[in-house]
Amino acid sequence: MRVAIVTESFLPSVNGVAHSVMRVLEHLRDTGHQALVIAPSSGGQAPSSYAGFPVVAAPSGTFPGYPDLPFGVTTSLRLETVLADFQPDVVHAAAPISMGHKAVTVAHRMGIPSVAVYQTEYASFATRYWIGPAQSFIWRRVRNTHSLATMTLAPSSYTRQVLINRGIPRVGMWGRGVDAVRFSPGRRDEELRRRLAPGGERIVGYVGRLAPEKQVEDLRVLADLPGTRLVVIGDGPRRPELEAELPGAVFLGQLTGDDLPRAMASLDVFVHPGEMETFCQSVQEALASGVPAIAPARGGPIDLIDPSHTGWLYPAGDLATLRSQVQDLVGDERKRLAFSRAARESVRGRTWSAVCERLVGHYRAAVEAHRLQQVV
Protein backbone atom coordinates (compact mmCIF):
# COMPACT_ATOMS: atom_id res chain seq x y z
CA MET A 1 0.00 0.00 0.00
CA ARG A 2 0.91 3.65 -0.34
CA VAL A 3 0.33 5.37 3.01
CA ALA A 4 0.56 9.11 3.66
CA ILE A 5 1.00 9.75 7.39
CA VAL A 6 0.14 13.26 8.55
CA THR A 7 1.21 13.67 12.16
CA GLU A 8 0.83 16.57 14.58
CA SER A 9 4.06 15.56 16.33
CA PHE A 10 7.30 13.93 15.20
CA LEU A 11 11.01 13.93 15.84
CA PRO A 12 12.79 15.57 17.56
CA SER A 13 9.78 15.66 19.92
CA VAL A 14 9.63 12.60 22.17
CA ASN A 15 6.05 11.62 22.99
CA GLY A 16 3.48 8.90 22.37
CA VAL A 17 2.33 10.25 19.01
CA ALA A 18 5.84 10.49 17.56
CA HIS A 19 6.80 7.09 19.01
CA SER A 20 3.85 5.24 17.47
CA VAL A 21 4.35 6.91 14.07
CA MET A 22 7.98 5.79 14.08
CA ARG A 23 7.02 2.19 14.84
CA VAL A 24 4.38 2.24 12.08
CA LEU A 25 6.91 3.56 9.54
CA GLU A 26 9.41 0.86 10.48
CA HIS A 27 6.74 -1.81 10.01
CA LEU A 28 5.67 -0.40 6.64
CA ARG A 29 9.31 -0.48 5.52
CA ASP A 30 9.85 -4.03 6.76
CA THR A 31 6.70 -5.34 5.05
CA GLY A 32 7.23 -3.74 1.65
CA HIS A 33 4.79 -0.81 1.72
CA GLN A 34 5.48 2.77 0.63
CA ALA A 35 5.00 5.76 2.91
CA LEU A 36 5.33 9.51 3.10
CA VAL A 37 5.34 11.58 6.31
CA ILE A 38 4.09 15.15 6.68
CA ALA A 39 5.20 16.50 10.05
CA PRO A 40 5.84 19.77 11.90
CA SER A 41 9.24 21.29 11.24
CA SER A 42 9.86 21.79 14.99
CA GLY A 43 12.04 24.82 14.43
CA GLY A 44 13.83 23.30 11.45
CA GLN A 45 14.89 20.20 13.39
CA ALA A 46 12.60 17.63 11.77
CA PRO A 47 14.49 14.87 9.90
CA SER A 48 14.34 14.80 6.10
CA SER A 49 13.54 11.09 6.16
CA TYR A 50 12.74 8.24 8.52
CA ALA A 51 12.89 4.47 7.89
CA GLY A 52 13.82 5.28 4.31
CA PHE A 53 10.66 7.33 3.71
CA PRO A 54 10.66 11.07 2.97
CA VAL A 55 9.51 13.51 5.63
CA VAL A 56 7.85 16.68 4.34
CA ALA A 57 8.36 19.37 6.96
CA ALA A 58 5.51 21.80 7.55
CA PRO A 59 5.45 25.05 9.51
CA SER A 60 4.70 24.47 13.17
CA GLY A 61 3.13 26.15 16.17
CA THR A 62 3.09 25.22 19.85
CA PHE A 63 0.42 24.83 22.49
CA PRO A 64 0.06 27.73 24.95
CA GLY A 65 2.38 27.18 27.89
CA TYR A 66 4.00 24.12 26.32
CA PRO A 67 6.65 25.05 23.72
CA ASP A 68 7.99 21.48 23.67
CA LEU A 69 4.85 20.14 21.96
CA PRO A 70 4.61 21.46 18.37
CA PHE A 71 1.80 20.91 15.90
CA GLY A 72 1.58 21.46 12.15
CA VAL A 73 0.02 24.61 10.65
CA THR A 74 0.41 24.09 6.92
CA THR A 75 -2.18 25.11 4.31
CA SER A 76 -4.80 22.91 2.68
CA LEU A 77 -3.35 23.79 -0.72
CA ARG A 78 0.08 22.53 0.30
CA LEU A 79 -1.39 19.29 1.63
CA GLU A 80 -3.40 18.79 -1.54
CA THR A 81 -0.27 19.26 -3.67
CA VAL A 82 1.78 16.78 -1.62
CA LEU A 83 -1.00 14.17 -1.61
CA ALA A 84 -1.63 14.59 -5.35
CA ASP A 85 2.08 14.00 -6.03
CA PHE A 86 2.29 10.93 -3.77
CA GLN A 87 -1.09 9.42 -4.71
CA PRO A 88 -1.66 7.46 -1.49
CA ASP A 89 -4.11 4.59 -1.10
CA VAL A 90 -4.93 5.88 2.37
CA VAL A 91 -4.17 8.88 4.60
CA HIS A 92 -3.27 8.16 8.23
CA ALA A 93 -3.90 11.22 10.43
CA ALA A 94 -2.05 10.84 13.75
CA ALA A 95 -3.70 12.77 16.60
CA PRO A 96 -5.38 15.21 14.19
CA ILE A 97 -6.26 18.67 15.53
CA SER A 98 -4.60 21.26 13.28
CA MET A 99 -2.71 19.97 10.25
CA GLY A 100 -4.38 16.58 10.69
CA HIS A 101 -7.80 18.21 10.53
CA LYS A 102 -6.87 19.82 7.21
CA ALA A 103 -5.42 16.54 5.95
CA VAL A 104 -8.64 14.62 6.65
CA THR A 105 -10.67 17.43 5.06
CA VAL A 106 -8.45 17.48 1.97
CA ALA A 107 -8.46 13.67 1.70
CA HIS A 108 -12.27 13.70 1.86
CA ARG A 109 -12.43 16.31 -0.88
CA MET A 110 -9.94 14.38 -3.04
CA GLY A 111 -11.74 11.07 -2.57
CA ILE A 112 -8.89 9.43 -0.63
CA PRO A 113 -9.78 7.07 2.25
CA SER A 114 -8.54 8.26 5.63
CA VAL A 115 -7.90 6.70 9.03
CA ALA A 116 -7.91 9.19 11.92
CA VAL A 117 -6.01 7.87 14.94
CA TYR A 118 -7.21 9.54 18.15
CA GLN A 119 -4.28 9.76 20.56
CA THR A 120 -4.52 12.94 22.63
CA GLU A 121 -7.25 14.31 24.91
CA TYR A 122 -6.86 17.81 23.52
CA ALA A 123 -10.00 19.16 25.24
CA SER A 124 -8.97 17.95 28.70
CA PHE A 125 -5.41 19.02 27.92
CA ALA A 126 -6.69 22.58 27.41
CA THR A 127 -8.07 22.80 30.95
CA ARG A 128 -4.64 22.01 32.39
CA TYR A 129 -3.11 24.92 30.49
CA TRP A 130 -5.62 27.53 31.63
CA ILE A 131 -7.51 27.70 28.35
CA GLY A 132 -10.64 25.89 29.56
CA PRO A 133 -13.01 28.03 27.43
CA ALA A 134 -11.44 26.36 24.37
CA GLN A 135 -12.88 22.98 25.37
CA SER A 136 -16.13 23.28 23.42
CA PHE A 137 -14.29 24.55 20.33
CA ILE A 138 -11.81 21.67 20.53
CA TRP A 139 -14.55 19.05 20.82
CA ARG A 140 -16.32 20.55 17.79
CA ARG A 141 -13.04 20.37 15.85
CA VAL A 142 -12.45 16.77 16.96
CA ARG A 143 -15.99 15.75 16.04
CA ASN A 144 -15.81 17.46 12.64
CA THR A 145 -12.44 15.90 11.84
CA HIS A 146 -13.29 12.35 12.83
CA SER A 147 -16.74 12.47 11.25
CA LEU A 148 -15.11 13.20 7.89
CA ALA A 149 -12.62 10.33 8.27
CA THR A 150 -13.43 6.98 6.72
CA MET A 151 -12.53 5.34 10.02
CA THR A 152 -11.49 6.51 13.50
CA LEU A 153 -9.26 4.39 15.72
CA ALA A 154 -9.24 4.82 19.49
CA PRO A 155 -6.36 3.38 21.55
CA SER A 156 -8.49 2.01 24.40
CA SER A 157 -12.03 0.90 25.21
CA TYR A 158 -12.53 3.87 27.54
CA THR A 159 -11.49 6.37 24.89
CA ARG A 160 -13.60 4.63 22.24
CA GLN A 161 -16.69 5.05 24.40
CA VAL A 162 -15.87 8.72 25.05
CA LEU A 163 -15.71 9.33 21.30
CA ILE A 164 -18.95 7.45 20.65
CA ASN A 165 -20.66 9.45 23.40
CA ARG A 166 -19.45 12.62 21.67
CA GLY A 167 -21.25 11.59 18.48
CA ILE A 168 -18.24 10.41 16.49
CA PRO A 169 -19.15 7.59 14.05
CA ARG A 170 -17.25 4.52 12.84
CA VAL A 171 -14.92 4.19 15.83
CA GLY A 172 -12.73 1.10 16.01
CA MET A 173 -9.80 0.26 18.28
CA TRP A 174 -6.08 0.12 17.70
CA GLY A 175 -3.77 -0.28 20.69
CA ARG A 176 0.00 0.05 20.89
CA GLY A 177 2.82 -2.44 20.87
CA VAL A 178 5.70 -2.76 23.30
CA ASP A 179 9.30 -3.81 22.78
CA ALA A 180 9.49 -6.64 25.30
CA VAL A 181 13.16 -7.23 24.44
CA ARG A 182 14.17 -3.68 25.25
CA PHE A 183 11.85 -3.51 28.27
CA SER A 184 12.53 -6.65 30.26
CA PRO A 185 13.04 -7.79 33.88
CA GLY A 186 16.54 -8.78 32.81
CA ARG A 187 17.45 -5.09 32.63
CA ARG A 188 17.18 -4.73 36.41
CA ASP A 189 20.41 -3.13 37.67
CA GLU A 190 21.32 -3.73 41.30
CA GLU A 191 24.12 -1.16 41.22
CA LEU A 192 21.67 1.50 40.04
CA ARG A 193 19.24 0.46 42.76
CA ARG A 194 21.94 0.90 45.42
CA ARG A 195 22.66 4.41 44.12
CA LEU A 196 19.00 5.38 44.09
CA ALA A 197 18.12 3.75 47.42
CA PRO A 198 21.32 3.33 49.47
CA GLY A 199 19.27 2.36 52.52
CA GLY A 200 17.69 -0.59 50.71
CA GLU A 201 14.36 1.18 50.30
CA ARG A 202 11.74 -0.06 47.85
CA ILE A 203 11.79 2.14 44.76
CA VAL A 204 8.52 3.67 43.59
CA GLY A 205 8.85 5.40 40.23
CA TYR A 206 7.14 7.49 37.59
CA VAL A 207 8.22 7.76 33.94
CA GLY A 208 6.83 10.43 31.62
CA ARG A 209 6.63 14.11 30.81
CA LEU A 210 6.70 16.53 33.72
CA ALA A 211 3.71 18.54 32.56
CA PRO A 212 0.40 19.62 34.14
CA GLU A 213 -1.72 16.96 32.44
CA LYS A 214 0.40 14.18 33.98
CA GLN A 215 -0.53 15.21 37.57
CA VAL A 216 2.89 14.18 38.88
CA GLU A 217 2.28 16.39 41.91
CA ASP A 218 -0.16 13.72 43.15
CA LEU A 219 2.90 11.64 44.04
CA ARG A 220 3.28 13.88 47.10
CA VAL A 221 0.94 11.48 48.90
CA LEU A 222 3.78 8.91 48.71
CA ALA A 223 6.56 11.26 49.86
CA ASP A 224 6.63 10.07 53.48
CA LEU A 225 5.82 6.40 52.88
CA PRO A 226 8.21 4.47 55.18
CA GLY A 227 10.85 2.29 53.56
CA THR A 228 10.43 3.77 50.08
CA ARG A 229 12.34 6.05 47.72
CA LEU A 230 10.45 8.03 45.08
CA VAL A 231 12.16 8.28 41.66
CA VAL A 232 10.92 10.55 38.87
CA ILE A 233 12.14 9.91 35.32
CA GLY A 234 11.41 12.50 32.64
CA ASP A 235 11.56 16.19 31.93
CA GLY A 236 9.17 18.99 31.09
CA PRO A 237 7.92 22.45 32.01
CA ARG A 238 6.87 21.51 35.56
CA ARG A 239 10.19 20.04 36.66
CA PRO A 240 11.35 23.02 38.81
CA GLU A 241 8.00 23.15 40.65
CA LEU A 242 7.90 19.39 41.13
CA GLU A 243 11.43 19.31 42.54
CA ALA A 244 10.26 21.86 45.12
CA GLU A 245 7.03 19.94 45.86
CA LEU A 246 8.81 16.55 46.12
CA PRO A 247 12.11 17.41 47.87
CA GLY A 248 12.79 13.82 48.89
CA ALA A 249 12.42 12.39 45.37
CA VAL A 250 15.28 11.58 43.01
CA PHE A 251 14.84 13.31 39.63
CA LEU A 252 16.78 11.53 36.88
CA GLY A 253 15.66 13.72 33.96
CA GLN A 254 14.83 12.33 30.54
CA LEU A 255 16.50 8.98 29.88
CA THR A 256 17.04 7.40 26.46
CA GLY A 257 18.81 4.40 24.95
CA ASP A 258 19.61 1.60 27.40
CA ASP A 259 19.33 3.95 30.39
CA LEU A 260 15.52 4.08 30.24
CA PRO A 261 14.76 0.32 30.27
CA ARG A 262 17.45 -0.20 32.91
CA ALA A 263 15.87 2.42 35.17
CA MET A 264 12.35 1.13 34.51
CA ALA A 265 13.25 -2.48 35.38
CA SER A 266 15.03 -1.30 38.53
CA LEU A 267 11.79 0.02 40.02
CA ASP A 268 9.75 -2.05 42.47
CA VAL A 269 6.42 -0.33 41.75
CA PHE A 270 5.43 1.98 38.90
CA VAL A 271 2.87 4.76 39.44
CA HIS A 272 1.30 6.94 36.74
CA PRO A 273 -1.17 9.43 38.30
CA GLY A 274 -2.30 11.13 35.05
CA GLU A 275 -6.03 10.93 34.36
CA MET A 276 -5.87 12.00 30.70
CA GLU A 277 -4.10 9.00 29.19
CA THR A 278 -5.79 7.68 26.07
CA PHE A 279 -3.43 4.68 26.23
CA CYS A 280 -0.41 5.19 28.56
CA GLN A 281 2.55 3.49 26.93
CA SER A 282 4.73 3.88 30.02
CA VAL A 283 2.37 1.58 31.95
CA GLN A 284 2.80 -1.06 29.25
CA GLU A 285 6.60 -0.65 29.35
CA ALA A 286 6.55 -1.06 33.12
CA LEU A 287 4.55 -4.29 32.80
CA ALA A 288 7.00 -5.57 30.17
CA SER A 289 9.80 -4.79 32.64
CA GLY A 290 8.12 -6.94 35.27
CA VAL A 291 7.13 -3.94 37.39
CA PRO A 292 3.59 -3.86 38.86
CA ALA A 293 1.76 -0.69 37.82
CA ILE A 294 -0.72 1.56 39.61
CA ALA A 295 -2.83 4.18 37.83
CA PRO A 296 -6.25 5.87 37.99
CA ALA A 297 -9.24 3.86 36.80
CA ARG A 298 -9.68 6.16 33.84
CA GLY A 299 -8.49 6.06 30.24
CA GLY A 300 -6.02 3.62 28.74
CA PRO A 301 -4.71 2.01 31.96
CA ILE A 302 -8.09 0.31 32.44
CA ASP A 303 -7.25 -1.98 29.50
CA LEU A 304 -3.63 -2.50 30.54
CA ILE A 305 -3.71 -3.17 34.29
CA ASP A 306 -5.42 -6.28 35.66
CA PRO A 307 -6.25 -5.35 39.28
CA SER A 308 -5.00 -7.79 41.89
CA HIS A 309 -2.82 -9.52 39.27
CA THR A 310 -0.53 -7.02 37.47
CA GLY A 311 -1.15 -3.91 39.57
CA TRP A 312 -3.95 -1.74 40.89
CA LEU A 313 -6.41 0.85 39.61
CA TYR A 314 -7.63 3.51 42.03
CA PRO A 315 -10.64 5.83 41.68
CA ALA A 316 -9.51 9.01 39.92
CA GLY A 317 -8.58 11.61 42.51
CA ASP A 318 -8.58 9.16 45.44
CA LEU A 319 -5.01 9.66 46.58
CA ALA A 320 -5.58 7.88 49.88
CA THR A 321 -6.32 4.69 47.93
CA LEU A 322 -3.26 5.29 45.74
CA ARG A 323 -1.13 5.46 48.87
CA SER A 324 -2.63 2.29 50.35
CA GLN A 325 -2.13 0.40 47.06
CA VAL A 326 1.55 1.36 46.91
CA GLN A 327 1.92 0.44 50.57
CA ASP A 328 0.31 -2.92 49.86
CA LEU A 329 2.89 -3.80 47.19
CA VAL A 330 6.03 -2.41 48.80
CA GLY A 331 5.15 -4.15 52.06
CA ASP A 332 4.50 -7.63 50.66
CA GLU A 333 7.43 -9.03 48.70
CA ARG A 334 5.71 -12.29 47.85
CA LYS A 335 2.71 -10.48 46.38
CA ARG A 336 4.92 -8.01 44.53
CA LEU A 337 6.93 -10.79 42.90
CA ALA A 338 3.73 -12.59 41.85
CA PHE A 339 2.43 -9.35 40.34
CA SER A 340 5.79 -8.89 38.61
CA ARG A 341 5.59 -12.28 36.88
CA ALA A 342 1.98 -11.69 35.84
CA ALA A 343 2.85 -8.21 34.57
CA ARG A 344 5.50 -9.56 32.23
CA GLU A 345 3.22 -12.33 31.01
CA SER A 346 0.40 -9.87 30.29
CA VAL A 347 2.29 -8.18 27.43
CA ARG A 348 3.01 -11.41 25.57
CA GLY A 349 1.75 -11.02 22.01
CA ARG A 350 1.68 -7.22 22.11
CA THR A 351 4.62 -6.84 19.74
CA TRP A 352 4.81 -3.78 17.52
CA SER A 353 4.88 -6.09 14.50
CA ALA A 354 1.55 -7.69 15.42
CA VAL A 355 -0.05 -4.36 16.39
CA CYS A 356 1.12 -2.60 13.21
CA GLU A 357 -0.09 -5.47 11.04
CA ARG A 358 -3.52 -4.95 12.58
CA LEU A 359 -3.24 -1.29 11.60
CA VAL A 360 -2.53 -2.28 8.00
CA GLY A 361 -5.69 -4.37 8.20
CA HIS A 362 -7.56 -1.23 9.27
CA TYR A 363 -6.06 0.63 6.30
CA ARG A 364 -7.39 -2.07 3.97
CA ALA A 365 -10.81 -1.99 5.64
CA ALA A 366 -10.94 1.80 5.19
CA VAL A 367 -10.06 1.49 1.51
CA GLU A 368 -12.78 -1.14 1.01
CA ALA A 369 -15.37 0.90 2.97
CA HIS A 370 -14.54 3.94 0.86
CA ARG A 371 -14.87 1.90 -2.33
CA LEU A 372 -18.31 0.67 -1.29
CA GLN A 373 -19.40 4.22 -0.47
CA GLN A 374 -18.35 5.28 -3.95
CA VAL A 375 -20.34 2.44 -5.52
CA VAL A 376 -23.45 3.42 -3.56
Rank of each mutant, 00 (worst) to 15 (best):
S9Q: 11
F10G: 01
P12L: 01
P12I: 00
V14Y: 14
A18K: 00
H19R: 03
V24N: 00
V24F: 02
V24T: 10
L28W: 09
L28Y: 04
D30L: 05
T31V: 10
Q34V: 00
L36S: 08
G43F: 14
Q45E: 14
A46S: 14
S49E: 10
Y50C: 02
A51M: 01
P59G: 05
S60D: 14
Y66P: 01
Y66S: 03
P70F: 10
F71W: 01
V73I: 13
V73H: 08
T74G: 00
E80V: 11
E80I: 08
V82P: 08
A84E: 04
D85V: 02
F86G: 05
P88F: 03
A93Y: 01
A94L: 00
A95C: 10
V106T: 11
A107E: 09
H108D: 13
R109S: 13
M110C: 05
I112N: 05
V115C: 10
V115K: 04
A116K: 01
T120Y: 09
E121T: 00
F125R: 09
F125K: 01
F125A: 06
A126L: 04
R128L: 06
I131L: 07
I131N: 02
R141Q: 15
V142S: 12
N144S: 15
A149W: 02
A149H: 03
T152L: 00
A154D: 04
S156T: 00
S156A: 10
V162N: 00
I164C: 02
I168M: 07
I168E: 06
V171M: 10
G172A: 07
G172M: 02
M173L: 13
M173R: 10
G177C: 08
V178I: 11
A180N: 15
D189F: 08
E190T: 12
R195V: 09
R195D: 13
A197V: 06
A197D: 11
G199S: 03
G200A: 00
G200S: 05
R202T: 12
A211Y: 02
K214M: 13
K214P: 13
V216K: 09
E217M: 05
D218Q: 13
D224T: 09
P226N: 11
D235G: 03
G236V: 01
R238Q: 07
P240V: 00
E245K: 12
L246N: 12
P247C: 07
L252M: 11
L252T: 09
G253K: 05
D258A: 11
R262C: 14
L267V: 04
V271I: 03
H272Y: 09
P273C: 10
E275K: 04
M276C: 03
T278K: 03
F279D: 06
Q284I: 00
Q284A: 07
G290W: 01
G299F: 05
I302C: 04
I305Y: 12
I305A: 08
P307K: 00
G311M: 07
W312K: 02
W312F: 14
W312R: 15
W312Y: 15
L313Q: 05
A316H: 12
G317E: 14
L322Y: 10
E333V: 11
K335V: 01
R341S: 03
E345Q: 04
S346N: 08
R348S: 08
G349W: 06
R350E: 11
S353N: 15
R358V: 01
R358C: 09
L359V: 00
L359F: 12
H362V: 02
H362L: 03
Y363V: 06
R364S: 03
A365W: 01
E368N: 08
Q373E: 14
Q374Y: 08
V375P: 01
V376Y: 07
